[in-house]
Structure formats: C-alpha cells, structure tokens
C-alpha cells in the first residue's frame, strides 16, 4: 500500500519554496491510478514522486514533461507500484542530471492509462471527440487497434456511439483506447460546431490491404 502522506491543511496555494505532500492517496491505488486521477483533476503543481524500489519521477506540468532517474523502460512496472510518496514542488526546474531522461508528459499519462483497462469510460455516448495528436506509437506501448482508431478519428470528429457503429472493434477495445487517449490529451472533446462542419464519418475498412499487411508481418 502507498506510504501515507500528511494531509495538506494549507489548501491550494500558489507555488512557494516549500514542498508539501499531497492529500493521502487511496490505500489500494497504484501509482498509475493516482496519476490518472491527477490528470483528470487538471492538477497544476509540479510533482515529485518517490517510488519504492525504483527511484524518482518528476512531473513538470509547466514544461509539459516528466523526468525519471531510472530507465524509462522500467516505467510500466514503476507505475504499478503501491509504495510511493507524492510531493508538490516549485516551478524551478533544475537541469536534469546526465542519467535522467526527460520526455513528454502526454507519454506518461498514456503509459499509466494502459494499466487501467478496466476503468469505466465516463463519457456521454454522443459527445463529439477529435484526435488532437497521434500518440508517438513507435516509442509507446500500443495495440494495432489504437492505430486503427486514430486513423478513423483523423480528420473526422466522432462520438463514442459512432466509433462503435463504424469500427469492427469491441466496445472494450474502444473504451480502453479512449480512456488512455483522453487521459493523455491525444483525444479531446470538440465543440458541436467543429463536429457539425467536419467531413462525413468514414467507416473503418474491414479486411483489405491493412489486414493482409497485418497477417504478413504478424502484428
């Protein structure tokens, strides 16, 4: 279970030099679930997370980046940790040490959300969604369905209802993708006007060249 942090009695102050620990995380929450909650709450303060058995993870919301002092390849395991302390830190960012890696914050939320596949999707079925940016798939954990769904959304705002109707994918696959993409900011809700004037929705092609390619390369 996570190391319990001291409840914050000072409220939501602007950054000062003092570091303070955030309100207690739920006892059964993995770090991935805690980060997903922080992402949904549009948390503003930069954070430092000490993860038992791994090291330090820093989230710099003002720089839209995160930094670790352990290899990024270990991040999925680190995010499943239940022993960690989250501390709010100031906006001053030290130059990263040579052994630290710095990466986009969107990648971190995407990786974290991959561990929360069973989360219910809290989204109205007819809310129009748009693809703001493709995830950097060659560098991120992904499935081929994620690429297909990005292809569908590319240039065509769609609702969850339309995605279910026009793709050959299971509702669970679509929900898992949207949970991750919304948490990371790759997919965003768009206005009704944007959806109104957008090109007509195109159904996902079934079989065809893509399926032949996937069969050939064993994706």
């Amino acid at each position: 279970m996570p190391l319990l942090s001291i409840p914050n009695e000072h409220g939501d102050r602007p950054e000062a030099a003092n570091q303070r620990e955030l309100p207690e995380a739920q006892a059964s929450s993995s770090l991935a679930r805690t980060l997903a909650r922080l992402g949904r709450e549009h948390h503003r303060h930069n954070l430092r997370v000490r993860i038992a058995d791994f090291g330090l993870l820093e989230l710099h919301f003002d720089q839209c980046s995160y930094r670790t002092d352990f290899p990024v390849a270990e991040l999925p395991r680190a995010l499943s940790a239940r022993r960690y302390v989250v501390t709010a830190i100031g906006t001053h960012v030290d130059t990263p040490a040579p052994h630290c890696s710095e990466n986009p914050l969107t990648d971190l939320f995407w990786i974290a959300a991959q561990q929360l596949k069973d989360e219910a999707l809290a989204l109205p079925e007819d809310a129009p969604l748009k693809l703001a940016q493709w995830p950097n798939f060659p560098r991120l954990p992904h499935r081929v369905e994620h690429i297909q769904l990005c292809g569908m959304l590319s240039g065509h705002p769609m609702s969850l209802r339309e995605m279910r109707a026009h793709s050959a994918l299971s509702p669970a696959s679509i929900a898992a993708f949207l949970n991750a993409a919304l948490a990371a900011g790759y997919v965003q809700r768009c206005s009704d006007d944007e959806a109104l004037f957008a090109p007509k929705v195109v159904p996902m092609a079934r079989g065809g060249l893509l399926q032949r390619l996937l069969n050939r390369i064993g994706f």
Binding site: V202, G208, L210
Partner: peptide
C-alpha cells in the same frame, strides 16, 4: 529498427485505406 518502421507502415496503410473509402 524493423519494429518501429512496421508501426509507421501500419499507420500509413490505415490512412491509405481511410482515404480510399473517403
């Protein structure tokens, strides 16, 4: 890196198919 280039090619073919359908 073959794995990374496969991802690139998969994304491209996905978009090619969408474009043809459009």
């Amino acid at each position: 890196d073959r794995a990374q280039m496969v991802v690139l090619l998969t994304a491209l073919i996905t978009l090619v198919q969408m474009r043809e359908t459009e």
